[in-house]
Nucleic acid binder design. Structure first.
Lengths: 144, 144
DNA sequence: GTTTATGCAAATTCTTTGCAATACT
DNA sequence: AGTATTGCAAAGAATTTGCATAAAC
């Protein structure tokens, strides 16, 4: 039950996205995979400690350029990186809403079926969308 | 026809939000009002030139604290500030989607009726939401 | 052996604050 | 006079780059 429906063979994931496998990249990828939610640079630095921040940064850029992660903005502190589960390399069809908890400052993924498609006015060409909710997560709304 | 449905008496707007009227604040407010779309610090600095950036910054904070603007994140470069048209000082009910053009890097407001309410899983407490679309705006999708 | 990845340090950029001078009431 | 606002300068924080070393192929 601790396995996701997708493979967690991180080596394979790197290979599928044409990214050379290194120990560091596996660490970053695993951190993102086990977190199960989008992580910021600061969060990754906290989790990984052994890797220099510049390398984490470059690793994330490599992942982004090869469609292994996408980048989301949750309005907290800079951006967050999240594993890209869709395998389409074109339009970003792996869309779901994110919930940013203003208390613990974590960002969670919400079920994707809750994302409604907008009706765009004439002339706009949509590439991606980012639906961000803010408030308190279940853990934090319980606490007083 | 160049007037919005709301008043553009900026002095009055400041007064209604309990903000003392100064020449600089009127300039910032007017810049936001005439832009008609959310502006970043950099954009405001570009438009206003005569005011120091630290003062623009503090002015925007004052506006935010008094519910004259809200702050939105559009994933470009930091945050943007947008005139708050609703007069409720509680929950942020002045919600609409924003469209960020990846070419000209401007952010536009979309009609608010296009914002769908999400169905949140148990336990989440919603404070605000931010619906951001990205792609090309009408002006830019025309250009080659 | 050549190319790629990594760590360290520093450059860059952006946001935020300290403080003295100015303007307002 | 007293309080609030402003500009300048600089502190802080985060992202990004240069470069020499180390690792991978």
């Amino acid at each position: 039950m601790d396995d996701k429906c997708h493979t967690t063979d991180y080596t394979l994931m790197l290979a599928e996205h044409n990214i050379r496998v290194t120990a560091n990249r596996l660490l970053v990828l695993k951190a993102l995979g086990t977190a199960g939610r989008p992580l910021s640079m600061a969060e990754l630095e906290g989790v990984i400690a052994t890797i220099d921040k510049s390398n984490i940064f470059r690793t994330l850029n490599t992942f982004r350029d090869n469609d292994l992660v996408h980048v989301i903005e949750d309005g907290s502190d800079g951006v967050r990186y999240e594993l890209c589960l869709s395998h389409s390399h074109g339009f970003d069809d792996d869309l779901h809403a994110h919930f940013f908890c203003e208390r613990c400052r974590k960002t969670f993924c919400l079920p994707s079926n809750d994302i409604p498609q907008p009706s765009l006015p004439q002339g706009y060409k949509l590439h991606s969308l980012n639906y961000l909710l803010k408030g308190l997560c279940p853990a934090c709304s319980g606490k007083k």
